[in-house]
Amino acid sequence: MFNYTFHWNQALRALPQMLDGALVTLQIALLSMAIGLACAIALTLFRLSGNRILGGFATAWVEIARNTPALFQIYMAHFGLGNFGIHLSPYTALLVGIAFNNAGYLAENFRGALKAIPDTQTRAARSLGMTSLQAFRYIVLPQMLRIAFLPATNQMVWAILMTSLGVTVGMNTDLAGVTQELNARSFRTFEFFALAAVIYYVIAKAVTLAARLFAARMFRY
């Protein structure tokens, strides 16, 4: 029968601790997006380069990132690399794993966005004496980022949620990690996780809203 008594006070007393964890979560998500974005631009250039090795490398990255579980990607960054003598802390491994995943998805978004930009834009830029890199940097990239912006926002939300996988590699300072430890001490599973879920929800919604406002300011054309 249903005879569970809620103990919200205990959970609410732990709220400051959980909010500290939420900051760590947000930090990892933002950093992983920044790194992922830089890598995705590089991967996109690799795929455009026409170089077989660079293109193959980029395609392999995108394929693995998009078609294997994010959990495995984070595991690999922590335990997999550990086998080769590269020991990443749980924080770094989580960051690397999510950044890897972000880069794959963003690069694929960029590929789609590029298709929407007519070749004639590059031709016009080259006709003005720009190098192919300048044409990419000043003409293609800004348009590509605009088209890919909303999908990238989704990826950002996904990155926030993915940080919770950090508990599997011993991460204990982010929101999921903090919640997990509180739970282990108190067994108030429902209360703690419900509260954590609310915090995740609020962060995700806030990020989406912030992205909308940012887009409205940035993309005025």
Binding site: R123, A124, A125, S127, T131, F219
Partner: peptide, 21 residues
């Protein structure tokens, strides 16, 4: 070619405005 193109302006049928600028 990049240098040569500075002295050869070209305008196309489609205007090719850069929409973000």
């Amino acid at each position: 070619l990049n240098k040569l193109r500075r002295k050869l302006g070209i305008v196309f049928q489609q205007f090719n405005a850069f929409p973000h600028l």
